[in-house]
Simulated assay, not measured.
Amino acid sequence: MDGKVCLITGATGGIGLETAKALARMGATVVLVGRDPGRTEAAVTAVKEAAPDAHVDRLRADLTSLKSVRELAQAFRSRYSRLDVLLNNAGLIIDRRQVTEDGLEATMATNHFAPFLLTNLLLDVMKATGPARIINVSSDAHVAARLDFDDLQSEKRYIGFQVYGTSKLANILFTRALAKRLQGTQVTANAVHPGMVRTGFGHNTVGFFRHIVKLGAAFMISAEKGARTSVYLASSPEVEAVSGQYFYKCRPKKPSSAARNDALAERLWQVSEQLTGVKG
C-alpha cells in the first residue's frame, strides 16, 4: 500500500479505526473522517502509535448533512490528487426518527445518501488514479429488509432496526449499480458484511436494540477481526479485478434476493440522484 491514499469515513472508532491502523501499517496514507474533533484527533494519535512512520491525516464532516459531505469532498480534492481506496464505513442506528437539515431521515441520510454523494463526487479522482477501490460497509441486517419508495423517509412507520436494515440493503444495491457503471474503468466497488462486531455501535439507542447489543456482546467478534474483510478488499491483489460483490470473511457471499434486484438498484440510484442533487 506504499504511496496509496485511503479515505475512511467513520474512522474514529471500531472497524474504521482498526482498518485505518492496518492500512497505515502497510504503508498507506490514511485520511480519517470524523465528526467530533476530539475523537478524530484521538484516532489520529492511535493510528500513529500503531504505525509510527505512516502519514495520517484528518478531515471533519457531519455525514447527516449533504452540504458537509460536499465540503468533505472539496477538502479532500484540495489536498490530494489521487484516491486509491474509498471506504464508506460510517454507520448510524437510532431508535427514534430524526430528520436532517436536508429533510432526510437520519439513518438513511448517514448510511446511504452520504456515501452515495461522496462516492460520486470523488469518482473522477479515483478514475484518474488508476486501479482504485470503493468499499461500502453493509450488513446481514439487509436480509429481512425491503425498500418502500412510497415511504423511503419512514414517515408512516419507523422501527429503528428495520430502517437500519433498509439502509444496509441500499448499500448493496448502490454497490451493484455502481459496479455496472464502472465497467471498463480501473475502479471497483464491493460491499462487505463485517460480522457482529463488539464496538460502541448501537449504544446511543435507548430501546430494544440497545438491550440486544448488550446481551450479544459476549458472542461478538473484536473490531480488529471485524475490520479484516475491509482491509482485504482494500489491499489484496486477489480482488483487484473483482467488482459488484458482497463479501463476508474475505469471501464473496450471496446477499438477499432484493439485494440482487437490478431494477430496484436502478430505481434507488435515480431517487438518490434526485435527493442528493449529485449532478448539480
Rank of each mutant, 00 (worst) to 15 (best):
A24W: 10
R70F: 10
A11P: 09
M26T: 05
A75T: 09
G184C: 13
S256Y: 11
F174N: 06
T12W: 13
C250K: 15
G244H: 09
A145F: 08
P52Y: 01
R210N: 14
R176M: 15
Y164S: 09
L32H: 00
A227N: 04
T9A: 02
R228A: 15
I159M: 07
A109G: 02
G216V: 09
S243Y: 09
H211D: 12
F209M: 13
L182P: 12
P131F: 10
L169Y: 03
S78N: 08
T12K: 11
G91P: 03
S256F: 13
V99Q: 03
I159K: 14
S154L: 10
T64N: 09
T19R: 09
V231Y: 03
P37G: 03
D148R: 10
A24V: 10
D53N: 13
Y248E: 13
K249M: 11
G38S: 03
R35H: 11
F201L: 12
G207V: 03
L63E: 03
I8C: 05
P115G: 00
T100G: 00
Y80P: 03
Q183F: 13
T276G: 01
Y164D: 09
T9L: 06
R97W: 13
L118M: 13
G202N: 11
A234L: 00
D102T: 02
I172Q: 11
A73V: 07
D95H: 10
N136S: 14
A90T: 07
V242S: 14
A61K: 04
Y246V: 15
A144P: 01
G91E: 03
V231K: 01
R157T: 07
Q153R: 10
L122F: 02
R39E: 14
L72A: 07
V239W: 08
D2S: 05
V143I: 15
D150G: 15
Y248V: 06
G244N: 06
T175H: 07
K127I: 15
K156M: 04
S78I: 02
W269Y: 11
A50L: 08
V137D: 04
A109V: 04
V5H: 04
G195L: 09
C6V: 12
G277E: 07
R251E: 15
L118C: 12
T166W: 03
N89D: 06
T110E: 05
